[in-house]
Design a protein around this nucleic acid. Structure first.
Lengths: 200, 200
DNA sequence: GTCTATAGCCTGATAGAC
DNA sequence: GTCTATCAGGCTATAGAC
């Protein structure tokens, strides 16, 4: 009994996903054609349809692949012991680092937030965010802050992500310097704001 | 000498912009066809080309129109006197309210941050953000916070915008409730975080 | 599993009548 | 200033050879 079943050569199927992810990140679903994908993969367009039922199916598989990576990397930022304050700084600096290291994942996330339907968003939430979100909420509770833990967890993520989201425009804003794109600078800044907030 | 020159009926040109803005917000540049636009405007496709040179030109004009509205509305949140603390809370609650009231503008902004080229981003920065950004930076300085004013201004905006950006997925995250989409709740939460930060 | 060829539709854009 | 008609090319997806 072979474990390479009807879905065809698994390796090719994977290569298609991994080569198409950067395209979808750069141009979005509507901005990428099956021909574009076949070109970067190095096959004919028809080959794509051997591995995936249609463009939507390929896209969905690509998102699942990309975001399962993201889930692992986010969880690694939360797998640590120490005082709540230490864990807060650890999460902040590590999450910032990861967002800087894989801009593609952040961009895909933002595109999904704009264009994803309910089903895809639910999948994304369960696949990537529910687990780390619970840890952050628990962290917020331990810090004994007098505010809604859900709102605080979202605020923490937004504080970090927005700096990357606006990277392309900040150089045209007053005081925009190269160092503001340095993940170390961003991480320190956010950690300072957050620890300042809970300092009182 | 007529002031209705070669550009054709100005009113129609404006109607085209205003009807196409919601389409571009919902589906993005690549996701909207000239036929889609002509349908909602109620003209033939050819009529669009009488008023605008091509799809790109129409899109650019639509963005300029949309964002010049945004510039006015943001500036209105900053036109106020009082202590720095009062102005901070005033900006926070009003900016939150405005983002809740015109989700289209926020979505177009996010799409431009993802897809805009350098020229468009520079235009967007100067048209909408440079002025209010300066006011917020000045506010940050007056509050005497020991941190980079540019980073703080970005953080303030991100803290607010990210709650709206994630509205579509938060209902699948632990503790996500309807009230977390209420601009009053969001505004209060953000104001509390920010004043907490500067309380020390 | 991958190819070439192609069907059938949609796209941006234009020509020319009114 | 708006229309109808139309073009050339790109799009998703399939058929059938190898």
């Amino acid at each position: 009994m072979s474990n390479k079943k009807s879905a065809g050569n698994l390796n090719t199927a994977l290569v298609i996903l991994e080569k198409s992810i950067p395209l979808f990140a750069q141009s979005g679903y509507a901005g990428v054609s099956m021909r574009d994908i076949s070109k970067v993969v190095g096959t004919s367009g028809a080959a794509l349809y051997h591995h995936y039922p249609d463009k939507q199916g390929l896209y969905l598989a690509a998102m699942e692949h990309a975001f399962s990576d993201m889930a692992l990397s986010i969880q690694s930022t939360l797998d640590i012991k120490g005082t709540p304050e230490e864990r807060l700084v650890h999460f902040t600096t590590n999450f910032t680092d990861q967002m800087a290291r894989s801009p593609e994942l952040r961009i895909l996330l933002q595109r999904e937030l704009l264009d994803g339907d309910d089903e895809r968003l639910k999948l994304l939430a369960n696949l990537v965010f529910v687990k780390p979100f619970k840890v952050i909420k628990e962290l917020a509770r331990e810090l004994g802050l007098d505010c809604d833990a859900h709102l605080l967890a979202i605020s923490m993520a937004g504080l970090i992500l927005f700096h990357f989201e606006t990277e392309s425009i900040r150089r045209y804003l007053p005081g925009g310097l190269k160092k503001h794109n340095d993940p170390k600078v961003i991480g320190k800044h956010v950690a300072k704001l957050l620890t300042g907030m809970l300092g009182k």
